[in-house]
């Protein structure tokens, strides 16, 4: 057991061993959440604050349940980023939470670096539940865990990540996790949302979805976040679907055992055809279940982390 980190802020700074530790612990927790009494007392008496400064349902519920399954007391704190901007600063808010003896702060925030910013200033454990377009580490941990559960390995798999890459923290975290674990990562998407600089992260880049599908062991689709973008990036959803939507017809190009993954929520009929989302190759709901186990694992490991404060 070598986990030493106080916080989980990103995948980029994790070692292969640390990723492996989370996966190993998650395996144990998968057993726990499958039993009739789905709860263990590992975090009894600890306080976990779910601080979501950006709307999110699934990640918040997943963390909420993970903490409760570990017997922690959970406080939900939802606030829009704009209310922070108008009123109390983020740092003042989290210092108040720490003054109330919160041992864990799970932060979702629209600003890249927000989790690191508070982690450096608090002694509480901080888990990044998504910071702007930077990272969403638990998502990548649960995604790689799901691939491992299904394929037994990640090394030498070819993983195609398609959609809006530029604004995606899920893409960034998965790029780091998958390349560390030895996969070949291919990014696919419209040129405006997939700048060439991504190549420097050690991945391949393609704008030809149909040419990539037959080669992929995993097809990971990202939501096209139209509401987040200014119209200049892409003419229309229709144009996106025409080029990058995974339709049943295109699916025939895929390997028969290709895994279809999605971080949710799915835009059915946009990036992914509805029948494929529910089809045999889809592991999308497994991702959700594994998310709970992985988040329990992260909370459990951080609770034992003994890293000194950096500041």
């Amino acid at each position: 057991m070598s986990w030493k980190k106080k916080d989980l802020l990103d995948i980029r700074s994790l070692s292969v061993e640390e990723i492996g530790e989370v996966h190993a612990a998650a395996r144990t927790f998968r057993d726990v959440i499958a039993r009739e009494i789905k709860k263990v007392p590992a975090l009894r008496g600890k306080t976990v604050v779910n601080l979501f400064a950006e709307p999110s349902t699934r990640t918040r519920i997943s963390f909420d349940l993970a903490a409760k399954r570990l017997s922690a007391d959970v406080v939900d704190f939802e606030a829009s980023s704009s209310s922070f901007r108008k009123g109390e600063t983020l740092i003042d808010t989290v210092r108040n939470l720490e003054a109330l003896n919160a041992e864990f702060i799970i932060l979702r925030h629209a600003a890249a670096g927000a989790a690191q910013f508070i982690a450096e200033r608090l002694s509480a454990h901080v888990i990044n539940a998504g910071d702007g377009a930077h990272e969403h580490p638990t998502q990548a941990l649960l995604d790689t865990f799901t691939i491992l559960q299904n394929r037994g390995r990640i090394a030498e798999l070819r993983v195609l990540i398609s959609g809006d890459i530029l604004f995606s923290r899920v893409a960034r975290s998965n790029i780091h996790a998958l390349t560390k674990l030895g996969a070949t990562v291919v990014l696919c998407g419209p040129a405006t949302l997939l700048p060439d600089t991504f190549r420097e992260l050690g991945v391949e880049i393609s704008h030809d979805f149909e040419a990539e599908l037959p080669k992929a062991d995993v097809v990971y689709l990202l939501r096209i976040q139209h509401e987040r973008q200014r119209a200049v990036y892409f003419p229309s959803i229709g144009e996106f679907v025409a080029l990058f939507g995974l339709t049943s017809e295109r699916f025939r190009l895929c390997k028969p055992d290709a895994l279809i993954m999605h971080p949710g929520p799915i835009n059915r009929g946009v990036e992914l055809a509805s029948e494929l989302a529910d089809g045999r190759n889809s592991v999308i709901l497994e991702q959700v279940t594994n998310g709970l186990a992985v988040r329990m694992a992260v909370l459990y490991l951080l609770n034992g982390g003994q890293a000194p404060l950096e500041h």
Binding site: W3, T28, D31, V32, A42, Y300, G304
Partner: peptide, 18 residues
Amino acid sequence: VSFYRDDLGQRLPYPEPT
């Protein structure tokens, strides 16, 4: 018994399968 120990936090036992 990792998750049931009363000394969690002082030391972190590695969970093994049940």
